[in-house]
Protein backbone atom coordinates (compact mmCIF):
# COMPACT_ATOMS: atom_id res chain seq x y z
CA UNK A 1 0.00 0.00 0.00
CA UNK A 2 1.47 3.33 -0.96
CA UNK A 3 1.61 6.14 1.55
CA UNK A 4 -0.94 8.52 0.00
CA UNK A 5 -3.37 5.68 -0.30
CA UNK A 6 -3.01 4.84 3.36
CA UNK A 7 -3.51 8.45 4.24
CA UNK A 8 -6.62 8.59 2.18
CA UNK A 9 -7.99 5.54 3.94
CA UNK A 10 -7.31 7.03 7.35
CA UNK A 11 -9.09 10.15 6.29
CA UNK A 12 -12.07 8.21 5.07
CA UNK A 13 -12.12 6.34 8.36
CA UNK A 14 -12.05 9.56 10.36
CA UNK A 15 -14.81 10.93 8.23
CA UNK A 16 -16.89 7.85 8.82
CA UNK A 17 -16.40 7.99 12.56
CA UNK A 18 -17.50 11.58 12.49
CA UNK A 19 -20.50 10.56 10.45
CA UNK A 20 -21.33 7.96 13.07
CA UNK A 21 -21.25 10.45 15.92
CA UNK A 22 -23.28 13.00 14.08
CA UNK A 23 -25.76 10.28 13.21
CA UNK A 24 -26.18 9.43 16.86
CA UNK A 25 -26.70 13.09 17.56
CA UNK A 26 -29.26 13.29 14.77
CA UNK A 27 -31.03 10.31 16.27
CA UNK A 28 -31.20 12.11 19.62
CA UNK A 29 -32.58 15.22 17.98
CA UNK A 30 -35.13 13.22 16.06
CA UNK A 31 -36.26 11.36 19.17
CA UNK A 32 -36.67 14.60 21.05
CA UNK A 33 -38.61 16.07 18.16
CA UNK A 34 -41.24 13.34 18.50
CA UNK A 35 -41.35 13.88 22.24
CA UNK A 36 -41.31 17.65 22.04
CA UNK A 37 -45.09 18.21 21.98
CA UNK A 38 -45.59 16.10 25.08
CA UNK A 39 -42.53 17.45 26.89
CA UNK A 40 -43.61 21.01 26.19
CA UNK A 41 -47.10 20.47 27.56
CA UNK A 42 -45.89 18.52 30.57
CA UNK A 43 -43.51 21.34 31.34
CA UNK A 44 -46.05 24.11 30.99
CA UNK A 45 -49.05 22.39 32.53
CA UNK A 46 -47.52 19.94 34.99
CA UNK A 47 -43.94 20.51 36.09
CA UNK A 48 -44.04 24.28 36.12
CA UNK A 49 -47.36 24.50 38.01
CA UNK A 50 -46.19 21.86 40.45
CA UNK A 51 -43.14 23.99 41.24
CA UNK A 52 -45.29 27.07 41.31
CA UNK A 53 -47.67 25.42 43.77
CA UNK A 54 -44.73 24.58 45.99
CA UNK A 55 -43.51 28.15 45.68
CA UNK A 56 -46.90 29.68 46.40
CA UNK A 57 -47.31 27.53 49.48
CA UNK A 58 -44.49 29.51 51.07
CA UNK A 59 -45.94 32.93 50.32
CA UNK A 60 -48.81 35.17 51.27
CA UNK A 61 -50.59 36.12 48.08
CA UNK A 62 -53.31 38.50 47.05
CA UNK A 63 -56.67 37.36 45.71
CA UNK A 64 -55.23 36.92 42.21
CA UNK A 65 -52.57 34.63 43.50
CA UNK A 66 -49.72 37.14 43.16
CA UNK A 67 -47.22 36.38 45.91
CA UNK A 68 -46.78 39.31 48.28
CA UNK A 69 -44.51 38.29 51.13
CA UNK A 70 -42.63 35.24 52.27
CA UNK A 71 -44.60 33.13 54.68
CA UNK A 72 -42.21 30.34 55.46
CA UNK A 73 -44.08 27.38 56.88
CA UNK A 74 -46.89 29.63 58.16
CA UNK A 75 -49.51 28.08 55.88
CA UNK A 76 -48.57 24.57 56.90
CA UNK A 77 -48.46 25.45 60.59
CA UNK A 78 -51.82 27.11 60.29
CA UNK A 79 -53.28 24.13 58.48
CA UNK A 80 -52.19 21.65 61.08
CA UNK A 81 -53.57 23.79 63.88
CA UNK A 82 -56.89 24.43 62.15
CA UNK A 83 -59.73 22.14 63.07
CA UNK A 84 -61.22 22.72 59.66
CA UNK A 85 -58.21 21.18 57.94
CA UNK A 86 -58.23 18.28 60.37
CA UNK A 87 -61.87 17.64 59.54
CA UNK A 88 -60.94 17.74 55.89
CA UNK A 89 -58.10 15.26 56.39
CA UNK A 90 -60.39 12.98 58.32
CA UNK A 91 -63.07 13.24 55.65
CA UNK A 92 -60.53 12.41 52.92
CA UNK A 93 -59.11 9.39 54.70
CA UNK A 94 -62.55 8.10 55.66
CA UNK A 95 -63.68 8.61 52.11
CA UNK A 96 -60.76 6.51 50.85
CA UNK A 97 -61.58 3.84 53.41
CA UNK A 98 -65.29 3.85 52.58
CA UNK A 99 -64.88 3.74 48.82
CA UNK A 100 -61.75 1.74 47.97
CA UNK A 101 -62.07 -1.62 49.75
CA UNK A 102 -65.84 -2.01 49.29
CA UNK A 103 -65.62 -0.74 45.73
CA UNK A 104 -62.95 -3.27 44.78
CA UNK A 105 -64.69 -6.15 46.53
CA UNK A 106 -67.93 -5.31 44.74
CA UNK A 107 -66.22 -5.03 41.37
CA UNK A 108 -64.29 -8.24 41.95
CA UNK A 109 -67.49 -10.10 42.83
CA UNK A 110 -69.14 -8.81 39.67
CA UNK A 111 -66.10 -9.67 37.58
CA UNK A 112 -66.00 -13.23 38.92
CA UNK A 113 -69.69 -13.59 38.15
CA UNK A 114 -69.29 -12.14 34.69
CA UNK A 115 -66.28 -14.31 33.94
CA UNK A 116 -68.46 -17.41 33.74
CA UNK A 117 -68.92 -18.68 30.22
CA UNK A 118 -72.69 -18.49 29.92
CA UNK A 119 -75.06 -17.63 27.14
CA UNK A 120 -75.79 -13.89 27.10
CA UNK A 121 -72.89 -13.04 29.41
CA UNK A 122 -71.90 -10.17 27.10
CA UNK A 123 -75.09 -8.37 28.07
CA UNK A 124 -74.25 -8.53 31.76
CA UNK A 125 -70.68 -7.44 31.14
CA UNK A 126 -71.93 -4.38 29.31
CA UNK A 127 -74.38 -3.56 32.11
CA UNK A 128 -71.72 -3.93 34.79
CA UNK A 129 -69.29 -1.69 32.96
CA UNK A 130 -71.96 0.87 32.07
CA UNK A 131 -71.09 3.33 34.83
CA UNK A 132 -67.81 3.94 33.06
CA UNK A 133 -69.83 5.90 30.54
CA UNK A 134 -71.53 7.91 33.25
CA UNK A 135 -70.09 11.31 34.00
CA UNK A 136 -69.58 12.33 37.59
CA UNK A 137 -71.98 15.23 37.11
CA UNK A 138 -74.79 13.12 35.69
CA UNK A 139 -74.33 10.35 38.23
CA UNK A 140 -74.29 12.85 41.07
CA UNK A 141 -77.52 14.44 39.89
CA UNK A 142 -79.21 11.05 39.75
CA UNK A 143 -77.99 10.10 43.20
CA UNK A 144 -78.98 13.50 44.52
CA UNK A 145 -82.51 12.73 43.44
CA UNK A 146 -82.39 9.24 44.85
CA UNK A 147 -81.25 10.69 48.18
CA UNK A 148 -84.01 13.30 48.17
CA UNK A 149 -85.58 12.84 51.62
CA UNK A 150 -89.14 13.42 50.43
CA UNK A 151 -89.43 11.86 47.00
CA UNK A 152 -86.21 9.89 46.45
CA UNK A 153 -86.17 6.14 46.09
CA UNK A 154 -83.77 5.66 49.00
CA UNK A 155 -86.15 6.71 51.71
CA UNK A 156 -89.10 5.09 50.00
CA UNK A 157 -87.18 1.86 50.11
CA UNK A 158 -86.44 2.31 53.81
CA UNK A 159 -90.10 3.01 54.53
CA UNK A 160 -91.09 -0.03 52.52
CA UNK A 161 -88.64 -2.15 54.49
CA UNK A 162 -90.09 -0.83 57.72
CA UNK A 163 -87.05 1.25 58.67
CA UNK A 164 -86.98 4.88 59.68
CA UNK A 165 -86.07 7.48 57.09
CA UNK A 166 -82.60 9.00 56.82
CA UNK A 167 -81.67 12.57 55.93
CA UNK A 168 -78.98 11.17 53.65
CA UNK A 169 -77.01 14.17 52.47
CA UNK A 170 -78.12 16.53 55.18
CA UNK A 171 -77.24 14.40 58.19
CA UNK A 172 -73.59 14.94 59.22
CA UNK A 173 -73.46 11.31 60.30
CA UNK A 174 -74.65 10.01 56.94
CA UNK A 175 -73.46 12.52 54.34
CA UNK A 176 -70.00 11.03 53.79
CA UNK A 177 -71.40 7.53 53.65
CA UNK A 178 -74.04 8.63 51.16
CA UNK A 179 -71.44 10.23 48.93
CA UNK A 180 -69.27 7.13 49.25
CA UNK A 181 -72.09 4.83 48.15
CA UNK A 182 -72.69 7.00 45.10
CA UNK A 183 -68.96 7.04 44.37
CA UNK A 184 -68.61 3.29 44.64
CA UNK A 185 -71.37 2.95 42.10
CA UNK A 186 -69.70 5.46 39.75
CA UNK A 187 -66.33 3.69 39.93
CA UNK A 188 -67.58 0.14 39.61
CA UNK A 189 -67.69 0.23 35.83
CA UNK A 190 -64.02 1.00 35.37
CA UNK A 191 -62.79 -1.28 38.16
CA UNK A 192 -65.00 -4.10 36.92
CA UNK A 193 -63.72 -3.75 33.40
CA UNK A 194 -60.07 -3.91 34.38
CA UNK A 195 -60.60 -6.84 36.76
CA UNK A 196 -62.60 -8.77 34.18
CA UNK A 197 -59.78 -8.21 31.70
CA UNK A 198 -57.34 -9.53 34.28
CA UNK A 199 -59.47 -12.61 34.87
CA UNK A 200 -59.70 -13.33 31.19
CA UNK A 201 -55.94 -13.15 30.86
CA UNK A 202 -55.50 -16.11 33.19
CA UNK A 203 -54.58 -19.19 31.23
CA UNK A 204 -57.63 -21.47 31.13
CA UNK A 205 -55.36 -24.52 31.21
CA UNK A 206 -54.65 -23.71 34.85
CA UNK A 207 -58.34 -24.17 35.65
CA UNK A 208 -58.54 -27.28 33.55
CA UNK A 209 -55.67 -28.88 35.39
CA UNK A 210 -57.30 -27.86 38.69
CA UNK A 211 -60.50 -29.51 37.52
CA UNK A 212 -58.62 -32.69 36.70
CA UNK A 213 -57.02 -32.56 40.13
CA UNK A 214 -60.57 -32.33 41.46
CA UNK A 215 -60.19 -29.30 43.75
CA UNK A 216 -63.21 -27.24 44.77
CA UNK A 217 -64.15 -24.01 43.02
CA UNK A 218 -63.42 -22.03 46.15
CA UNK A 219 -59.99 -23.61 46.40
CA UNK A 220 -59.11 -22.74 42.82
CA UNK A 221 -60.40 -19.21 43.43
CA UNK A 222 -58.05 -18.86 46.37
CA UNK A 223 -55.07 -20.70 44.91
CA UNK A 224 -55.26 -19.84 41.24
CA UNK A 225 -57.50 -16.87 40.54
CA UNK A 226 -56.45 -14.45 43.25
CA UNK A 227 -52.68 -15.02 42.95
CA UNK A 228 -52.83 -14.80 39.18
CA UNK A 229 -55.01 -11.71 39.40
CA UNK A 230 -52.71 -9.98 41.87
CA UNK A 231 -51.00 -7.70 39.34
CA UNK A 232 -54.42 -6.47 38.19
CA UNK A 233 -55.67 -6.05 41.73
CA UNK A 234 -52.53 -4.16 42.56
CA UNK A 235 -53.07 -1.81 39.64
CA UNK A 236 -56.75 -1.34 40.50
CA UNK A 237 -56.05 -0.63 44.16
CA UNK A 238 -53.43 1.98 43.30
CA UNK A 239 -55.63 3.71 40.75
CA UNK A 240 -58.69 3.62 43.01
CA UNK A 241 -56.81 5.15 45.92
CA UNK A 242 -55.38 7.91 43.79
CA UNK A 243 -58.84 8.58 42.37
CA UNK A 244 -60.37 8.69 45.83
CA UNK A 245 -57.85 11.30 46.90
CA UNK A 246 -58.77 13.39 43.89
CA UNK A 247 -62.56 13.36 44.33
CA UNK A 248 -64.27 16.59 43.53
CA UNK A 249 -67.34 16.50 41.28
CA UNK A 250 -69.72 14.49 43.44
CA UNK A 251 -68.88 16.63 46.46
CA UNK A 252 -69.49 19.82 44.54
CA UNK A 253 -72.89 18.68 43.37
CA UNK A 254 -74.12 16.58 46.26
CA UNK A 255 -72.98 18.35 49.42
CA UNK A 256 -70.67 21.28 48.68
CA UNK A 257 -68.44 19.99 51.44
CA UNK A 258 -71.20 20.09 54.05
CA UNK A 259 -73.00 19.42 56.28
CA UNK A 260 -70.66 20.80 58.96
CA UNK A 261 -67.71 20.18 56.63
CA UNK A 262 -68.07 16.42 57.05
CA UNK A 263 -67.58 15.87 53.30
CA UNK A 264 -65.02 18.61 52.75
CA UNK A 265 -62.43 16.31 51.15
CA UNK A 266 -59.06 17.78 50.29
CA UNK A 267 -59.55 18.67 46.64
CA UNK A 268 -62.79 20.38 47.46
CA UNK A 269 -61.05 22.25 50.27
CA UNK A 270 -58.32 23.35 47.87
CA UNK A 271 -60.94 24.50 45.38
CA UNK A 272 -62.81 26.47 48.03
CA UNK A 273 -59.69 28.09 49.41
CA UNK A 274 -58.35 29.05 46.01
CA UNK A 275 -61.42 30.03 44.06
CA UNK A 276 -63.99 31.04 46.67
CA UNK A 277 -61.98 32.32 49.66
CA UNK A 278 -59.10 33.50 47.45
CA UNK A 279 -56.55 32.17 49.90
CA UNK A 280 -54.07 30.90 47.34
CA UNK A 281 -51.27 30.34 49.83
CA UNK A 282 -53.32 28.00 51.97
CA UNK A 283 -54.74 26.24 48.91
CA UNK A 284 -51.23 25.68 47.57
CA UNK A 285 -50.04 24.31 50.89
CA UNK A 286 -52.89 21.81 50.82
CA UNK A 287 -52.09 20.95 47.21
CA UNK A 288 -48.50 20.23 48.24
CA UNK A 289 -49.76 17.96 51.00
CA UNK A 290 -52.05 16.22 48.51
CA UNK A 291 -49.11 15.68 46.19
CA UNK A 292 -46.97 14.14 48.89
CA UNK A 293 -49.90 12.14 50.20
CA UNK A 294 -50.42 10.52 46.82
CA UNK A 295 -46.69 10.08 46.35
CA UNK A 296 -46.43 8.21 49.64
CA UNK A 297 -49.45 6.05 48.89
CA UNK A 298 -48.01 5.11 45.51
CA UNK A 299 -44.58 4.37 46.92
CA UNK A 300 -46.02 2.21 49.70
CA UNK A 301 -48.13 0.41 47.14
CA UNK A 302 -45.13 -0.32 45.01
CA UNK A 303 -43.04 -1.41 47.97
CA UNK A 304 -45.76 -3.80 49.12
CA UNK A 305 -46.63 -4.79 45.59
CA UNK A 306 -43.10 -5.86 44.81
CA UNK A 307 -43.34 -8.56 47.42
CA UNK A 308 -46.95 -9.60 47.14
CA UNK A 309 -47.64 -9.58 43.45
CA UNK A 310 -47.16 -12.70 41.36
CA UNK A 311 -46.24 -11.76 37.87
CA UNK A 312 -46.74 -14.42 35.27
Amino acid sequence: MSLPQAQQETQSFVKQRWLGNSRRFASLLEGLLYLLPSILLFTVFLFYPLMKTLYLSFFYSDAQGVPLSFAGFDHFVQLFSSSSFMTSMKATLLFVLYTVPPGIILALALALLANEKLRGIGFFRTIFSSTMGMSVAASSVIWMFMYNPAIGIANRFLTWAGLSEIQWLLDPGWALISVSIATIWMNTGFTFMILLGGLQNIDSQLYESAKIAGVSRFYSLRKITLPMLSPTLFFVITVSMINAFQTFGQIDILTKGGPMETTNVIVYAIYKDAFINYNVGSASAQAVLLFFGILIVTLIQFKLGERKVHYQ
Binding site: F248, A283, F291
Partner: peptide, 14 residues
Protein backbone atom coordinates in the same frame (compact mmCIF):
# COMPACT_ATOMS: atom_id res chain seq x y z
CA UNK B 1 -48.37 10.23 40.02
CA UNK B 2 -48.85 13.99 40.01
CA UNK B 3 -52.44 14.70 40.93
CA UNK B 4 -53.73 17.17 38.46
CA UNK B 5 -55.62 18.95 41.21
CA UNK B 6 -52.35 19.88 42.91
CA UNK B 7 -51.47 22.00 39.91
CA UNK B 8 -54.81 23.59 39.16
CA UNK B 9 -54.21 26.96 40.77
CA UNK B 10 -51.10 27.85 38.75
CA UNK B 11 -52.66 26.24 35.70
CA UNK B 12 -55.65 28.48 36.06
CA UNK B 13 -53.29 31.46 36.31
CA UNK B 14 -51.40 30.33 33.21
Amino acid sequence: MIPWEATMVPNFQT
